[in-house]
């Protein structure tokens, strides 16, 4: 999976490309360390537009990030999900846990 990060003012956007699953664990963690450390960043947006597959351990990673971000007073939102990715998030009712963006 490819992850690119873009920061604007108080927001960091992590754009994910490819399969978001168990094997992505280390890359994903590394990618969110910087926005977590940066005190200017108040919101972390996970852009799932380029994700073609997402499994339950990916959901777990999102929950873990949310837990850490909240303890630092930051929010995590999910954006641009579609197709099977959206289906998986719908079944898990993640819209009741994360703010969702178009």
């Amino acid at each position: 999976m490819q992850i690119s990060t873009r920061n604007t003012d108080h927001q960091a956007t992590l754009t994910l490309q490819g399969r978001f699953d168990f094997h992505t664990h280390r890359d994903f963690r590394t990618a969110y360390e910087q926005p977590l450390d940066d005190s200017k960043i108040k919101e972390i947006v996970i852009d799932l537009g380029g994700v073609e597959y997402l499994d339950s351990s990916a959901l777990g990673m999102l929950l873990l990030l949310r837990e850490r971000a909240e303890s630092l007073g930051k929010t995590v939102s999910l954006a641009k999900m579609q197709g099977t990715v959206k289906q998986v998030l719908d079944v898990a009712n993640f819209d009741k846990i994360f703010p969702m963006k178009a």
């Binding site: 929950l63 719908d90 079944v91 898990a92 009712n93 993640f94 009741k96 846990i97």
Partner: peptide, 15 residues
């Protein structure tokens, strides 16, 4: 009956 709740172990009791 579709899934209308997140899986268990995520939400705090209040939610």
């Amino acid at each position: 009956w579709g899934s209308t709740h997140p899986p268990l172990g995520i939400l705090p009791e209040a939610n």
